[in-house]
Write a protein that binds this DNA or RNA. Sequence first.
DNA 1: GTCTTTCTGTAGCGATCACTAGACAAATGT
DNA 2: ACATTTGTCTAGTGATCGCTACAGAAAGAC
Lengths: 210, 210
Amino acid sequence: MERTQDPRTVPASPAGRRGRPRSFDRETALEKAIMAFWEHGYEATSVSDLTRIMGIGAPSLYAAFGDKRALFDEVVAEYGRRYAAFGERALAEEPTARAAVARILREAAECYTAPDRPQGCLYAHAATNCTSPEVGERLREKRNEAIAAVESRIRADIAAGRLPADTDARALARHAGAVVQGMSQQARDGASRAELTALAEIALSIWPRT
Amino acid sequence: MERTQDPRTVPASPAGRRGRPRSFDRETALEKAIMAFWEHGYEATSVSDLTRIMGIGAPSLYAAFGDKRALFDEVVAEYGRRYAAFGERALAEEPTARAAVARILREAAECYTAPDRPQGCLYAHAATNCTSPEVGERLREKRNEAIAAVESRIRADIAAGRLPADTDARALARHAGAVVQGMSQQARDGASRAELTALAEIALSIWPRT
DNA sequence: GTCTTTCTGTAGCGATCACTAGACAAATGT
DNA sequence: ACATTTGTCTAGTGATCGCTACAGAAAGAC
């Protein structure tokens, strides 16, 4: 539990590592995998797709990442850190639930239509209709956790008197979540950034003005 | 072009049809296929899944429906007639765009959480992350057509003076579409009918009171 | 140098995919 | 009766799936 670090996640070459060093950069390979899963989803991205896109052989992929499922788990985690953190940041940094949701909707419109990236949200689309139930369940939890986080932020505002006491926090959170999820779908269906932004502004008008 | 009717779609047994009659009911087999594709999506439903669920052998399936792709096309068409027609009906029957959208959102909450049926909307989920691009494109068109239909209904109301002249019809239609699509996702993620109904009522509050 | 360790490339594993050839079964037409 | 037409069944097609055995290549340890 001291020197034993998982050899798969280690950068391979720096001092102490014996044997032939890895011939590819693990991080950039993971980034390619993120893009592939993001665009085509878990099932529709085959291991041979991955090896071609990542530029490595299958045995190298399995040595570095475990198996397809473990690679996807790592992709989901890294995607969360790199591309889906704007939600948590907004909830943490904005002074009110309304401001947080407003920022989430606006940033979602931008994030989901960023050029040179797959459109929409990986959490929403990469594991729908999944043969492996656990993979689908993993992203389902991510979606429900996101809605629950908004809900508890709303509850905090209600408790602080910033929102009416009879506010239906759960429904309000589900509404925000539904709009975000619908925006992701529409981004994949070809909606422009301007269209999603206009959509988001309309959705925001349900919130009582502060 | 007169007596030649596609033998695959004909009920098989009534007078005039020679040869061994079909040993299963084509309509109920199609209904089973609808449920299977609705629940698991196009790719995740294998032909052997279908033959097991429909209770027929693979050659019978291919003789009666063509191939997997043609069966799915027929499933989509029948699903549209049986389960997704509430949208068109609302747009045709309600006196205003607002009333139509209100009815669509409320009926979607019910339709997407009907017991003993797959949750959510087949159009929204059955062909995401699809290996075959045409299949995915087919349902994408359905989704975009639905939004366009709402948009033109809104434009009619604007032209008739029932909505302000500066109303952004496209954004308003996309908003309604996003809410419906998000409701479908959340139904699949476990939301109850009551939760979706509450969500829908909130979304409706963006519309100016008539 | 040689030994050990680790990674890479080839080549192929068994399982499943969508799909079908061919033999038999069951109806109608004459 | 018999021929014709059509459906069903068994059994299997080639292709692809995720994954890996094995041999050779490239590094540190001695």
